[in-house]
């Protein structure tokens, strides 16, 4: 089970899509997660901030979906920032090299 909520922040100089992800992203959740994440990211025309404070589990299927979203955003020369990763999940980003592809921010 997972949840995803998003909003576009237009208060700053440039628009940012802020997405909060919670719960578990596994094989069962992957199709719905992919659909909702890609809807939230759209064509990738803005920076994206993923808040993962309440994300408790993600597998390689979920990491692949995040990478797909990153590719959309990078095509438009924007960035994906990931905040508040739990240590166990940060470790997966490091193992797969995704810590170099995304911009991982320390817990806030």
């Amino acid at each position: 089970m997972f949840d995803l909520s998003s909003l576009t922040d237009t208060d700053t100089d440039k628009d940012v899509v802020r997405i909060a992800i919670s719960g578990e992203i596994d094989l069962q959740a992957a199709p719905d997660f992919k659909k909702r994440l890609y809807e939230a990211v759209g064509e990738g025309g803005t920076d994206v901030v993923l808040d993962c404070a309440d994300l408790s589990y993600i597998d390689s299927t979920g990491l692949g979906i995040l990478l797909g979203a990153l590719k959309r955003v990078r095509l438009n020369n924007h960035h994906v920032f990931i905040r508040n990763l739990k240590d166990s999940i940060r470790k997966l980003f490091r193992i797969t090299g995704l810590d170099k592809a995304f911009i991982l921010e320390e817990a806030q």
Binding site: D26, L27, Y57, D59, S60, T61, S88, L92
Partner: peptide
């Protein structure tokens, strides 16, 4: 847990 799930994911997919 992560590794067991990875194997099962692939086996199922």
């Amino acid at each position: 847990k992560v590794c067991t799930s990875e194997v099962l994911n692939k086996a199922i997919a």
